[in-house]
């Protein structure tokens, strides 16, 4: 139970069914605000719902809302797995 030993990874490292806490949003100020108003905020728990094949978008669940997000955008969002 080493709580200190958390690994920060990009959102894309999450597999379907896994959950993680959002650590940082990564993008510029405007995009960050947009993500927050969609429900993606630091400290929130995300669950990976689906990954589309061939580098397609991810579908994640935050607070009961599903959000589809492109792979490149998702790569810049940092999480710690739970």
């Amino acid at each position: 139970m080493s709580g200190r030993d958390v690994k920060v990874t990009p959102l894309t490292a999450l597999l379907p069914g896994e959950k993680a806490r959002i650590v940082a949003l990564g993008h510029g100020k405007g995009r960050q605000r947009h993500l927050r108003t969609m429900g993606l905020m630091e400290g929130k728990i995300v669950e990976m719902v689906a990954m589309q094949p061939a580098r397609g978008p991810l579908v994640i669940n935050v607070d009961g809302t599903q959000i589809a997000i492109g792979l490149g955008m998702a790569r810049r969002i940092l999480i710690e797995k739970m």
Partner: peptide
């Protein structure tokens, strides 16, 4: 740009 879209219930 890429897709960023809310998928409503």
């Amino acid at each position: 740009p890429e897709l960023l879209l809310e998928v409503p219930p």
